[in-house]
């Protein structure tokens, strides 16, 4: 049994113009000590997937269905009180927006110690000591001074470090990091990733890392899940995926599809632009969600949705032509 198991997750939003199927039947699991990367273009449902795990989706307009199990325990059936005991304690999250994720009118110290005190039942003094220790751990100089400061006194990199310190303060079993470095500049990105790697090695937590950057994936992840329009289209070990991506969308992302005019050598580590737009999630799509943008589209793609199938050991792909393309390659 994996530490975190997500099965047939469906997160839909009711909007004035119809139901937005932001996440539509996604399954995956993560083991302790493992890093799963989730990649995909913007708007494909990565953040919604992450926030569904902690049930941070506003309901209404959102609605989460399926099952999410932590150590076998179903989180979707947990009470509000049980969820509060899990959030920030068993499962922590770092958000995509480091600039605005801290409260502007509360001190950094308050925001760190309140998490610690919420879950660890420590006294004020012990919680402050722990907060100082966490700030040191994430490489913040003069932690004592920082505790008394506010959000506006800190740089973006500093803010994200504090978010990481808060997320890790209670030694979570699962850390969900939603594009933790996207908003930061490159040198800070490398530092933050190093930090996350060290921490994983130290605590053996499972990490779900959402990212845009395939370079980051190659560096820190063991397994990769590729999402498109609210669905999982491919999942494989990181080496396997980079060597032999089988879904046309993944190949597009990797810039490895000759028809799209990119070349294998000199491929940028950033996601490549794929022509066309992500389809609206508001209309149920009969066939493959990628059909409209796929270079190898055939009739069957437009009428039958491809199931996720095991195409090699540990390599799941949802594409009618996956086998054939591999054979042709």
């Amino acid at each position: 049994m994996a530490l975190l198991e997500v099965e047939n997750l469906q997160t839909h939003f009711r909007t004035p113009s119809g139901i937005n199927r932001a996440v539509d039947g996604v399954s995956f699991s993560v083991n302790a000590g493992e890093t799963l990367a989730i990649v995909g273009e913007s708007g494909c449902g990565k953040s919604v997937t992450a926030m569904s795990i902690l049930r941070l989706i506003p309901e209404p307009p959102g609605k989460i269905a399926g099952s999410i199990r932590l150590n076998g325990r179903d989180l979707l059936n947990a009470s509000a009180r049980e969820m509060r005991a899990i959030r920030g304690n068993d499962i922590s999250m770092i958000f995509q927006e480091p600039m605005t994720s801290l409260n502007p009118v509360l001190t950094i110290g308050r925001q760190l110690t309140e998490t610690i005190r919420q879950h660890a039942r420590l006294g004020a003094k012990a919680a402050t000591d722990r907060a100082m220790e966490m700030l040191q751990l994430v490489g913040i100089p003069e932690p004592g001074r920082r505790l008394a400061e506010y959000r506006h006194q800190l740089s973006g990199g500093m803010r994200q470090r504090i978010m990481i310190a808060i997320a890790l303060a209670c030694d979570p079993k699962v850390l969900i990091a939603d594009e933790p470095t996207t908003a930061l500049d490159v040198t800070i990105q490398a530092q933050i990733l190093d930090l996350m790697r060290d921490l994983k090695a130290r605590t053996g937590a499972a990490v779900v890392l959402i990212t845009h950057d395939l370079g980051v994936v190659a560096e820190v992840a063991e397994r990769v899940m590729v999402m498109y329009a609210g669905r999982k289209v491919e999942e494989a070990g990181v080496g396997d995926l980079f060597r032999s991506a089988r879904h046309p969308y993944t190949k597009g992302l990797l810039g490895a599809v000759p028809k799209l005019g990119a070349s294998l050598a000199g491929a940028d580590t950033r996601l490549v632009e794929i022509p066309g737009l992500v389809p609206s999630l508001k209309n149920r799509i009969a066939g493959c969600v990628f059909a409209d943008r796929c270079a190898s589209v055939t009739n069957v793609c437009r009428s039958v949705a491809p199931a996720l199938e095991l195409k090699a050991a540990g390599h799941l792909v949802a594409c009618h032509h996956a086998r054939r393309e591999v054979a042709a390659a």
């Binding site: 941070l56 959030r87 920030g88 998490t115 808060i166």
Partner: peptide, 17 residues
């Protein structure tokens, strides 16, 4: 609707806090 309120929820704080 601000991000820091979501952060507060993600930390497991009670609704009244």
């Amino acid at each position: 609707s601000q991000d820091y309120v979501r952060t507060a929820r993600a930390k497991g704080l009670g609704e009244s806090t």
